[in-house]
Amino acid sequence: MDPFLLEALVNGILLGGVFALPVLGCNLVFGVVDVVWLCYAELVMVGMYAVWFLHTQQAWPLYLAFAAALPLVGLLGVLLHLIVVKPLLGAPPINQLLATGGVLFVLQGGAMLVFGTDFRSLGVELPPMEWHDVFVSGTKLAAFCAALAGAAALWAFLKFTYIGIAIRAIARDREVMPLMGVDPRRVYVVASAVGGALAGLAACLLVVQLDVHPFIGLSFGPITFMICVMGGLGNMLGGFLAAFLMGLIVSTGSFWWNTEMSYVIAFAFFIAVIFGRPRGLFAR
């Protein structure tokens, strides 16, 4: 096989892994709380700034900066839930969308005020790996492995812990939960914390690959939501698979045409999917 095509395929899978985390986070929150966090990519942006700030400005070792980003953005998720989402739980979905969309602009504006519009680079890069003329960025590979580890940890949490199982249960039937002694409001907070922590992990993986600036969310936010809808909103496994599909479309698109065109193709594919399967690729 053409090593460049192979490289594109490998990169597509690596990209899919990075898409997967915010998709899982969005789906988790939506499945449980029934509210879309339109500002999800901006939570990631805040996490990226946090890592950049702690590492380059405060001279924290990188691993400590990473370790801080998860609880920090997790806490941000909880605050978002308590301050913005919770008061609107009974409100029409459009109001909830507008509110979390408003937070998007608040976070963008806040980042601009605090950090300015400069592109901030972490300046770390792992050496590339080579295998039979196929070159893969070491940084991307490490990010991919961390993304898979994060997804696996999420899976174990949802599969084996009481609160994780309750999260999967509540996504299907919230009225019945109090009969089992589960306070849905508490589960919402836990899901928001985990959803935020996933954004924090995504931030760690992205900040080593991309320069951070206040509008960075726009470069992966829309595609995150496209993937969520393609996989079926709230469907974790569907979103996970769709993330890899989208990664492959984008990277092979860039291989055959160019990067700009690849996003056009990805978007066209998305439109085709929502016409053909409005409830997602994997809806039964």
């Binding site: 009481y162 999967r168 249960a169 019945v176 589960v182």
Partner: peptide, 28 residues
């Protein structure tokens, strides 16, 4: 403990996971 009308099981969870939801409270 209340077994509601129409059962209201979690169909997408296994039998054991349904029991775990039933055992959510700390004492259980």
């Amino acid at each position: 403990a209340h077994v509601p009308e129409n059962r209201r099981l979690f169909p997408h969870l296994t039998v054991e996971e349904n029991l775990k939801v039933g055992a959510f409270i700390p004492s259980a």
